[in-house]
Amino acid sequence: MVNGTTGGPVERDVHNDRAEIEAVEHDLLGLAERAGYSKASRFAIRLAFEEAITNAFQHGHRGLDESVPVRVGYEVGPDEVRIWVEDKGKGFRVEDVPDPTLDENLTNPSGRGLMLMKSYMTSVRYNPTGNRVEMVYRRR
C-alpha cells in the first residue's frame, strides 16, 4: 500500500518491479493532480521520476543483486513538488556524463536521462557521492 494522500512527505523502498514503480508513480501523480498541477506539469514530473528511477537501477545498481531496492521519497506542496531517489551503488560524477546534444553524440543511444531531468525540473541536485538525486519542480 502506498501512503501519501496528504501530500507527503512519503518515503519508501522500491524494487526494480514495474508494478511497484507504477504504484508509486500513480500515487505521486495523483497527489500532484489533486494539488492542481497541470497536465504539462505532471508530464514533466512523471518524465523526471521515470528517468531518476531508471538511472538508479540501470546505472547506480549495476553489479548489485536485482533484489536490492532504491529509496524513493516525494512531497507535493502547493508551490513545488520535491522528489528524491537514493540508490545503494557507488555513485557517479555528474560532470562525467557527456552532453548528448553535441553533434558527435547525437547518434549515441544512451545518456539523455539526466539531461531530460534537468530540462523538465526546476532543480536537480546530486549528493557528493552521486548516489542520491533530489529534484524540485516549482509550479509555473
Binding site: 528517468e51 531508471t54 547525437l106 547518434t107 543511444p109 544512451s110 539523455r112 536521462g113
Partner: peptide
C-alpha cells in the same frame, strides 16, 4: 523515456 529515444536512435 530516454530509453525509448535510445531504441529509436539504434
Amino acid at each position: 523515456s530516454s530509453a525509448a529515444l535510445g531504441t529509436l536512435i539504434t
